[in-house]
Design a protein around this nucleic acid. Structure first.
Length: 667
RNA sequence: UGGCCUAUGGUGUAACUGGUAACACGUUGGUUUUUGGUACCAAAGAGUCUAGGUUCGAGACCUAGUGGGCCAACCA
C-alpha cells in the first residue's frame, strides 16, 4: 500500500468503483480506435495516454483498432504512420485489429435486427431524410418507408449487399424514435452503399457500416470494458447503448461483457490547431513542409523537432483528465521537453550570430584542445576536447561597448569567462564604415580561478563547422486560432514561423547523426534534422533555454504590496474534524497518533462546540469517531451526561463499524 | 424552439464519505553555479460563476439563472 495514493481522475474513479462492485480486474480491457485518415497529433496523444496508460496501470490489454468503415478516406499509409507513432511513444498494443474484420458479423446482426423489426431500409434521397429528421429544437417525422414489412426489408438489404443498387438508392436505418430529443436517436443510418475499394477488404463489400453501428459493436466483440472517447461523442452514448443492448440478445453467451462508453475533454494547445482537416490544409497549401514539419503539432512533427517520447508522456500526465473544455499553455509542453533534455542532452558550443574576437596576446599559430564536460547533469556522459585559438566567434549580443552593472557579459574594459577556456578582457573594437563592430580585440589571462560574473560560449573560427540552423516560432499568432466564429484560422498564420540561419558549431559535432539531440550551451536544445548530410549539417531548434535575462528587458511591473492576511486561528474542533475525516483510512500506528492528537486538541473544545457534530451523517464514520474521542475527553474532565450525549453514544454502539463500536465500548 | 455536458488562482488538474481550497506550469524575489540553464528556498495569486435552498457545516447535494461547449454528414 503506498502511503499517499495519488489522486485519481474521474475515469479512474469509475474503474475503481466498477472493481469494487464486482468487476474482476482481469476483465479490464481498453482500446485506442483511430480512423486511418490522417496523422496523429498531440491531441491524440492524450487519448493514447489515457487508454494505454490505464492498460499499464491495471495490467490490462489495450487493442489498437482501426475504425476503417469509410473506404473513401482511408489509406494504408495512415495505418502505417499511426502504428509508427504509437510505437515511438513506447506503447504496446495487445492486438492490432480492424473494424473491417467484423463486417460479416455486423451484417449478420443487422439482419437479425431487421427480423426483429428494429431496422429498416429507407429509399429516399438524403435531402428528404434530413428534412424529416427535424432540427435540434424541432422533432422529426416518420418517413414513408418506415413501416416496410420485414420480408421486404430483408430482401432489399440483401440486394444492397449484392450490389444490385447504386450509391444513394437505399440505406439501412435503425428504427428508434423520430421524435427523440437526441437527434442521433431519430432512426440513425446503419449502412450506406459505397462502391469503393477498401484498403483491407478490397471489393468484397459494397455496403459499409456507419460509425455508431460499427464502433460500439466492435467494442462489444472485443469485450472492451471501458470505451473512452472525447466529449463530442457524449450524445452518441444513448445510441451506443441502444445498439449494445439489442445485440446483446443475439450474443450474450459468447460475449457477456457490455462495454461502457465514457467521455473526456480533448486536449487543446495554445497557439496551434488540432483539427486533422485544418492540418491537412496547412500541408496542402504549402504553409508547412508536410505532416512532419517541425512546426506541426503532429507526433511526427514533434519527433522531427526533437521532442522525446518521455517528454510527451510527461506532458500528458501533467495535463490531467476532466470534462471541461481547456486550452493548455504551450509553456507546459516546453517545460516538459526541457525537463527531459536537461538530463539527457550533451552540451556543446555553437555560435548562431557571430562576431569575431581576436585575442591579441595569444600566439598566432597556437592551438589548444581543452577539456569540456559533456553534461554536468549526467556524470556518465564524460568529457570531450574543444579547440581554442587566437580567433574565435562569440554571440554578437554578448558584447556591448558600454553597459551597466547588470550586464554580465563582455564590455570594454570588462572581463568574462570563456566556457571551458580562459578569461578574457575586451580592450578595443574595430568597426566598419557603418559603425558595425567587425572585431573585438581582447587579451586573455590564464588564471581561470579568478571570479568573474559572466561565462560565454564560443567557437574557434578556424575549427568551427558551418551548419544550417532552423529556428521555429509558433505557427499562429493567436492563442486559439480556430476558436473564432468570425475569423478563419488561416488569418492568424505567423509569417515568420521559420527562420533559417547559418551558425558555427564546434568540430565535435562533425559526425552528429540524424535525430541526435544536444544543448547548444546558453541557447537551447537542438537536434539533427532528417535533411542533414555529413557535409551539410542541419539542426532544428527544439526549444530555447529559459532565459531570465531576456525577461528583464520588459520593465518590472509594480509590486502590489498586499499585506499577508492575518489567518484567524483555527478552532480546535475544526482541526479535529479534519483529522477525523481521514481516520478510518489510516494505518493503525498513525491512527493511534491521530487519536492522541485529537485527545490533546479536545481539551480546548467546549461542549457547545461539540454537540452539533452528534448529527454527523451515519456514513461518515471517521468524523463520528473523532467526535466520540473528543466527547470522552470532555466526559473525563467533568462534562455531565445528557440526552443528546446518551443518544449519540447509543448510536455509536449500534453502528456496524468495528472501530466506532470499540471506541464506544467503555461508555 | 429542445436535449446533453460543463463552470475551482493567469493556465491545467486535485480536494476520497459534505468538515472552510492542494499540486504543477507560469509569475516575482533569493541562494548555489565555468550555461543569466539546472538545482534549492521563498513569496504573491482563487474563498470555488450568480441567487436561493437542504445542513450544525456546501467547492461538493437540490432548484433556478448566467457564461461556455456539443448535437441537424449516406464522416469518425
Amino acid at each position: 500500500m503506498s502511503e499517499d495514493k495519488k489522486s485519481l481522475n474521474f475515469i479512474e474513479h469509475i474503474i475503481e468503483e466498477d472493481l469494487e462492485n464486482g468487476l474482476s480486474s482481469d476483465k479490464l480491457r481498453f482500446r485506442f480506435p483511430p480512423e486511418p485518415n490522417g496523422y496523429l497529433h498531440i491531441g491524440h496523444t492524450k487519448a493514447i495516454g489515457i487508454s494505454f496508460g490505464l492498460g499499464e496501470s491495471y495490467n490490462a490489454p489495450v487493442n489498437l483498432r482501426f475504425d476503417d468503415t469509410n473506404p473513401a478516406k482511408e489509406e494504408q499509409e495512415y495505418v502505417d504512420a499511426i502504428k509508427r507513432d504509437i510505437s515511438w511513444l513506447g506503447y504496446k498494443w495487445a492486438n492490432e485489429l480492424y473494424s473491417s474484420d467484423y463486417f460479416q458479423k455486423l451484417y449478420d446482426w443487422a439482419v437479425l435486427l431487421i427480423k426483429d423489426g428494429k431496422a429498416y431500409v429507407d429509399s429516399q434521397s438524403s435531402e428528404a431524410m434530413a428534412e424529416q429528421k427535424g432540427t435540434p429544437t424541432q422533432p422529426g417525422v416518420e418517413g414513408p418507408y418506415r413501416n416496410r414489412s420485414v420480408e421486404e426489408n430483408l430482401d432489399l438489404f440483401e440486394r444492397m449487399k449484392n450490389g444490385e443498387f447504386d450509391e444513394g438508392e437505399h440505406i439501412l436505418r435503425a428504427k428508434i424514435d423520430m421524435q427523440h430529443p437526441n437527434m442521433l436517436m431519430r432512426d440513425p443510418l446503419m449502412y450506406r452503399i459505397l462502391k469503393k475499394s477498401h484498403h483491407r477488404t478490397g471489393n468484397e463489400w459494397c455496403i459499409y457500416p456507419m460509425y455508431d453501428w460499427t464502433h460500439g459493436e466492435s467494442d462489444y466483440i472485443e469485450q472492451v470494458s471501458h470505451s473512452l472517447c472525447s466529449l463530442e461523442f457524449k450524445p452518441h452514448r444513448p445510441l451506443y447503448d441502444w445498439f449494445k443492448h439489442n445485440v446483446y440478445d443475439y450474443a450474450k453467451e459468447d460475449l457477456p461483457m457490455l462495454p461502457k462508453q465514457r467521455e473526456f475533454a480533448r486536449l487543446n494547445l495554445s497557439y496551434t490547431i488540432m483539427s486533422k482537416r485544418k492540418l491537412l490544409k496547412l500541408v496542402e497549401d504549402g504553409i508547412v513542409n508536410g505532416w512532419d514539419d517541425p512546426r506541426m503539432p503532429t507526433i511526427s512533427g514533434l519527433r522531427r523537432r526533437g521532442y522525446t517520447p518521455e517528454s510527451i508522456k510527461l506532458f500528458i500526465e501533467k495535463v490531467g483528465v476532466a470534462k471541461r473544455e481547456n486550452v493548455i499553455d504551450v509553456s507546459l509542453l516546453e517545460f516538459c521537453i526541457r525537463e527531459d533534455l536537461n538530463k539527457s542532452a550533451n552540451r556543446v558550443m555553437a555560435v548562431l550570430d557571430p562576431v569575431k574576437v581576436v585575442i591579441t596576446n595569444y600566439p598566432e599559430d597556437k592551438e589548444e584542445w581543452l577539456e569540456a564536460e559533456n553534461n554536468q547533469e549526467d556524470e556518465s556522459a564524460g568529457y570531450r576536447k574543444v579547440p581554442f585559438s587566437r580567433e574565435i566567434y562569440i554571440e554578437r549580443e554578448d558584447f556591448k561597448e558600454e553597459a551597466g552593472k547588470k550586464f554580465f557579459r563582455l564590455q570594454l574594459g570588462g572581463e568574462v569567462r570563456l566556457k571551458n577556456a580562459y578569461i578574457i578582457k575586451a580592450e578595443s573594437v574595430v568597426k566598419d564604415e557603418n559603425g558595425i563592430i567587425t572585431e573585438i580585440h581582447c587579451t586573455y589571462s590564464e588564471d581561470t580561478e579568478k571570479k568573474v560574473k559572466g561565462t560565454l560560449h564560443w567557437v574557434s573560427i578556424k575549427h568551427a563547422i558551418k551548419a544550417e540552423v532552423r529556428e521555429y516560432d509558433r505557427l499562429f499568432m493567436n492563442e486559439s486560432p480556430d476558436a473564432h466564429k468570425d475569423k478563419d484560422f488561416m488569418e492568424f498564420i505567423n509569417p515568420n514561423s521559420l527562420k533559417i540561419i547559418t551558425g558555427y558549431v564546434e568540430p565535435s559535432l562533425k559526425d552528429a547523426e540524424i535525430g541526435e539531440r544536444f544543448q547548444f550551451q546558453r541557447i537551447g536544445y537542438f537536434n539533427v534534422d532528417d535533411d542533414s548530410k555529413s557535409d551539410k549539417l542541419v539542426f532544428n531548434k527544439t526549444v530555447g533555454l529559459r532565459d531570465s535575462w531576456a525577461k528583464q528587458k520588459p520593465k518590472p511591473k509594480q509590486t502590489n504590496q498586499n499585506k499577508p492576511k492575518q489567518q484567524p486561528k483555527r478552532p480546535a474542533i475544526s482541526i479535529i474534524q479534519q483529522l477525523g475525516k481521514k481516520y478510518t483510512n489510516l494505518p493503525e500506528e498513525k491512527q493511534l497518533r491521530t487519536k492522541a492528537e485529537i485527545q490533546e486538541l479536545a481539551k480546548k473544545v467546549s461542549y457547545e462546540e461539540l454537540e452539533p457534530w452528534f448529527g454527523t451523517a451515519m456514513k461518515k464514520v471517521g468524523t463520528r469517531i473523532a467526535t466520540l474521542i473528543t466527547l470522552k475527553v470532555l466526559l473525563n474532565t467533568g462534562q455531565k451526561r445528557n440526552d443528546a450525549i446518551n443518544e449519540f453514544i447509543q448510536k455509536c454502539k449500534d453502528d456496524k463499524n468495528d472501530l466506532l463500536v470499540k471506541e464506544s465500548a467503555d461508555l
